[in-house]
Amino acid sequence: MSIQHFRVALIPFFAAFCLPVFAHPETLVKVKDAEDQLGARVGYIELDLNSGKILESFRPEERFPMMSTFKVLLCGAVLSRVDAGQEQLGRRIHYSQNDLVEYSPVTEKHLTDGMTVRELCSAAITMSDNTAANLLLTTIGGPKELTAFLHNMGDHVTRLDRWEPELNEAIPNDERDTTMPAAMATTLRKLLTGELLTLASRQQLIDWMEADKVAGPLLRSALPAGWFIADKSGAGERGSRGIIAALGPDGKPSRIVVIYTTGSQATMDERNRQIAEIGASLIKHW
């Protein structure tokens, strides 16, 4: 067993022997301040990774656009098919120029040779490549099948209805392509620590998230040296922004954090800054 596999296998073990965790309302004060600064709703939840206990939450059962955070769930569904012998990570998928959609920095470079399922998941999570996500959605049967996968996990809230990039439209009061912070946090925890996926697939999923290259201005910008984070960000229309993450000190994750916002007129930089400040408060009061 590799060191990384050992780390993920012992996530519940280490967490069980940690000192009790206590909620700190100071972080919620910052979440509410972010709402004021952005002029928009902000949803927040913080779960203990081992027990699933909610440590703090704000608007945990209000719907927010998922945006690209759905790509972690998508690759979880792909990995479940791999575990069941219905898919192979090494299978190569070929596609054409007509398949390319807006923001496809990886797939646009491989029109000639195609990409493997493993490479597509890596591109979808680490670079948020939209064509990679659409190609992977095709392998599982489309958005409705991802929703069905989530329902089978016990998540009857999260739903995907459309493809990239239309799913980022974020129309107010439109339930399409949305989740709730509580539902997303619980589902992410199941994917990373539950028995739904094999140990190898859980490790692969967290490795992809740990290698995320496009979430630097968010929670990662607030992390002290030595902290662990595996995350996936999302951005959408109407001032929408979000991030889902597993993080913790001492090089291992111990909490799940989900943050979503929508309806702001603020710039992307300002949305990023507010999420980073929430992260800084979380870490300060850990």
Score class of each variant (00 low, 15 high):
80 S>D: 11
56 E>L: 07
223 L>A: 09
169 E>D: 11
71 K>G: 00
243 I>K: 02
75 C>A: 10
146 L>S: 01
59 R>N: 13
105 P>Y: 06
54 I>H: 08
211 A>Y: 13
236 G>D: 04
128 S>I: 00
205 L>N: 01
149 F>C: 06
54 I>V: 15
233 S>A: 08
64 F>E: 01
30 K>L: 09
188 L>T: 09
286 W>T: 03
93 I>N: 04
49 L>S: 07
46 E>G: 05
192 L>V: 10
108 E>M: 13
231 D>H: 04
224 P>G: 07
162 R>W: 01
62 E>A: 08
147 T>W: 05
120 L>Y: 00
100 L>P: 01
191 L>E: 00
266 A>Q: 12
113 D>I: 10
203 Q>S: 10
73 L>R: 04
55 L>K: 08
152 N>G: 12
87 E>C: 06
126 T>E: 14
48 D>V: 04
75 C>F: 02
190 K>C: 15
270 E>S: 12
126 T>K: 07
73 L>H: 06
46 E>D: 07
254 S>Y: 09
104 S>C: 05
43 G>N: 02
64 F>N: 00
76 G>W: 05
150 L>C: 09
276 A>P: 02
179 T>V: 03
34 A>D: 03
132 A>H: 03
75 C>Y: 03
100 L>I: 13
55 L>W: 07
267 T>R: 11
165 P>L: 09
165 P>R: 06
134 N>D: 05
75 C>D: 04
191 L>V: 10
203 Q>F: 08
65 P>S: 06
222 A>L: 07
204 Q>C: 15
239 G>S: 05
102 E>K: 12
156 H>Y: 15
27 T>W: 01
270 E>A: 15
46 E>Y: 08
208 W>D: 05
43 G>L: 00
143 P>V: 06
157 V>G: 10
198 T>M: 09
203 Q>K: 11
169 E>H: 10
251 G>Y: 10
202 R>T: 14
284 K>W: 09
34 A>K: 01
200 A>L: 11
60 P>C: 07
277 E>H: 09
57 S>W: 09
154 G>K: 07
180 M>P: 04
176 R>F: 08
37 Q>W: 14
49 L>T: 08
121 C>N: 00
91 R>E: 06
32 K>V: 12
237 E>S: 13
80 S>R: 15
257 V>F: 05
232 K>M: 01
167 L>D: 00
80 S>T: 14
67 M>Q: 08
112 T>Y: 15
271 R>E: 06
